[in-house]
Every structure is written in C-alpha cells, then in structure tokens.
Design a protein around this nucleic acid. Structure first.
Lengths: 250, 250
DNA sequence: TAGTGGTCTAGACCACGGT
DNA sequence: CCGTGGTCTAGACCACTAA
C-alpha cells in the first residue's frame, strides 16, 4: 500500500488538496458556498487550517472569497473561460516557438512517440485515453520551455477547464484535425521553423477554444432547459444569490 | 473620531496590503525571512491574520512558504526573471493581435495620444516620467483585450520586475528604439494587421527582456564584487534584525 | 434583536535545528 | 533536549441579515 488515501503534510495542505479534489470531482459544484463550519465538520480540523486552505485555493483561482461573506466555488462564466483560453493560446504559441528553437532531438523523439501513442489510441477507438494522451503531447512541449510560471498557469487553467470539458468529450471530426495539427507541428519542429510552429500552435489552440466554448454554450442551454434553478447537494446558495463576483476596486 | 490612515478592510487584507508594499519598497528585501512573531509585533495583530496574508502573497508570487519552516520574500534569480519576461512576451503578442483585430478607433486615438505624451517627455528629457508613460501605453493595449487573467499576470509580474528595473532606468539609445517600436506598432494597428502587430510586440518585449536581463546581470556582478561569496542563501537575516518601523502608528 | 457565520486572539502543541 | 518558531484548537468577537 504505497498510496495514501488522504494527502500528507500539514493540515492546511491536506485540506487544500482534498477540497481541490472535491471541487474538481464535482462534490462541490460551481457557485456552492464553502462554509467554514461545514468544512470543519467534514474534515475534522479547526477553522484556521480551513481558512488558509481556502486562501490558497483562491490564489489558484478555484475559489472566490469575499471578506465577511465567505467562500464559494468559483463560477466560470463564458467570459472568464474565454479569457483563460486566450491566455493558454498565447502560452502555447510561446512554448512552440521556443521548442522549435531550442528543443533537443531527444525531446523531439519523445514528442513523436507521444503522438504515435495518441494515433494508435484513436485507431483503436480508445476514447477514454484521448484526453490524457493529448495532454501528454502538449506537456512535453511546455516542459521543454523551462518556464515554471507558464507551466503553473497551464496546469491551473487545465484544472478549471476540465470541469467544462469532462462532461462532453471530443467529437470524431475534431480528433482527426487534432492529429493533423499535431503532425504539422512536428514538421515545423523538425524544420526548426519557430514562427511556423508558433502559428500552428496558435491555430490549434484557437480551434480547441472554439470547440470548448461551443460545448460550453450547449451545456448552458441544456442546463437551462432541464434545471431552471440549480440546487446543489450540500451547501445551498443563499436565496437571491448573484453569480456576479467579479467586482473589483479600480 | 476614528481615522483609517492604513489600508482598510479586515485585518488579513490590511496586513497583506502593507506587507506587499513593504516588500515592493524594499523594507523587506528578497530572501528576508518573514517571521510570524516579528510581523505580529510590527502590525499588532494575532498570528492568524498574518498567516492568511502570507498565504495570499504566496499566491501572488511575492512570498515563498515552506511548511514548518516559514515564509521568505521571494528571491528572483535570473531564471525566474527570464521566465516571467517570456510569459509577458507571450501575453504582449496576444493582446497586440487582439487590439489589431478588435480595438476601437477611440482606443487607437487614445493610444496615439499616450505615445504623443511619451515622445514629448523624451524631447523634454523628463526621464522620471519614462517608466509610467511607457506603462500607460502598454496598459491601454492590454486593457483593450478584455482579459482580466492576463491583466493580473502582467500587473503582478510588473511589481516583481520593478524591483530589478527601478535601480537602473533606461539607456538613451534604448529609449529611441522604444519610441520607434511603438510607432511601428501603431502603424500595424492602423492597418489592422494582427500578425504584424503581434510580431512587433513580440520583438519589442524581447528587446526589453534582453535589456533588463543585461542590467540584472550587471547588478549581480556589482553586488558580488562588493559582497564576495561568503555565506550562501541561508541565514541572510542579521541577528538583531528588528527594522526601524517608524511607520507603525502614524 | 437574534441568528448565522466569518474573523481574530490567546495559548497549547509540535517539528526542527542547534549545542 | 532545549529553544525557536510554525501550526492548530477553543472560544470570544463582530459584521451582516432576516424577522
């Protein structure tokens, strides 16, 4: 038994990790209030580790906190989703350029093998593996850029975007173009053409964005039809709650 | 008869804001330990608001925290600085493309006026205004992108990079090319040429990066000469530390 | 005005590093 | 194994809101 069921470390880390997981697995839905007392009971620790965990998750963009009002699971509206996707697009372009310029042949080989595995899975119709194999491909490129700041942003936004993505999966025609775009990217890398690689990555990310935003809108529309007023499992949102949390002091 | 000369809000926010300011104004230097007890005394609050403030600053990238070891002001080595500059470069490209595509003529006018003010200040030799006028120009472009995520990253990294930049200023030849690059960017915007605008912004950011990293290395070398090898990053804080807090109770 | 729930303090607890 | 300093708990305090 090498796997610990609960994360290790000091309490505020454990709470942070398990709340993060609970948010990402849908135990807490977007908009749900995260009350200190509920969490105290749920995780059997005092209020302060809870508060610190929530502050950290706020820093990760998973949670919104308002002084004297409390924390809620961040609600991703279309605008914020678009902003994240644009940011990812910019980073994808940057790391692609950098890979074309400085990526070692060893990494290029690794990338080719990742693509091979992806294509094989598609030929075999193993849909459940698409997402992780696609991620594996992009991770190699990103990690090669030696930019932890960018990596951090990519992984954080991945987590948030996964919530939207996980319910729908890829359409069959989209998979085909993903593979084609990856191959074009590999070509550009092999030619050491940074600008071309960047453009392909940019376009690739752009198509992925359009795809995801499409699905997002479809999801919203369906949800609206089925469930006019959402009510979550544990903590209910107070009546008259407005999802407008974006208020900032200029 | 209660005044609030210090930032308002709940304690952990006040502490966060004032510690941030103290870091950025050099009261706390990179590598300094931020001990809970010192801060408790300095700001006259309990440990927990301090801890929460530090957790938030950690999320902003200003502070490093290690469980059971404490917090230190984040030390920006050359690698991290480069990573931030690359990230900013990617974002500059993205927002420039977006401005060329969707920027209103009103904003374009605003941008031209900002550039005018910048050029005038250079003609008049008002060096102290260069930095803020340059920022003003770029801010217009970034804000037009309607991307709070990207804006947040730009402003956070600005704060961190300012610490390196503030000591040196711009060389006279660099200022000339900055102005030329801005004019080229304005041209591309006017032609609505997104790709060209992106490339100019990319190159512009690239030159700024090289410039800053150059100065960074020069600074390090000078520091090394003054303060040779000695003890490494451990125990950088003198024993009888206790900063002269003349500003504790104004 | 009572209730709910976020915030803060005092002090106990405990991990680590030095001697 | 003692001191320093980070972590956590219990409970008081206080902001907001519903009645």
């Amino acid at each position: 038994m090498k796997e610990t069921p609960t994360p290790s470390g000091v309490n505020y880390q454990r709470v942070r990790d398990v709340v993060r997981m609970d948010i990402l697995t849908g135990v807490f839905a977007p908009g749900d209030r995260l009350k200190i007392n509920d969490l105290v009971e749920r995780y059997d620790v005092g209020a302060n580790p809870i508060r610190e965990a929530l502050q950290q998750l706020r820093g990760e963009g998973l949670v919104e906190m308002i002084p004297n009002k409390g924390a809620t699971v961040r609600y991703l509206d279309e605008r914020v989703t678009r902003q994240m996707l644009e940011l990812r697009q910019a980073i994808e372009l940057m790391v692609a350029r950098k890979f074309a310029q400085t990526g070692s042949y060893k990494l290029l080989d690794e990338l080719k093998r990742a693509q091979e595995r992806f294509e094989q899975a598609v030929r075999d119709g193993h849909q459940s593996e698409y997402h992780s194999l696609n991620n594996a491909f992009h991770d190699i490129i990103i990690r090669a850029a030696d930019n932890q700041e960018a990596e951090l942003i990519m992984s954080r936004t991945s987590l948030l975007i996964r919530a939207v993505r996980e319910s729908v999966g890829y359409g069959p025609e989209r998979i085909g173009s993903i593979l084609a775009e990856h191959r074009a990217l590999l070509d550009a890398f092999e030619q050491r053409d940074a600008e071309k690689a960047g453009e392909i990555a940019w376009l690739h990310a752009s198509r992925a964005s359009d795809d995801l935003l499409d699905q997002y809108r479809r999801m919203m529309k369906a949800r609206m039809r089925v469930e006019p007023a959402g009510q979550s499992k544990r903590s209910r949102v107070p009546r008259g709650w407005t999802p407008d949390l974006a208020q900032k002091r200029p």
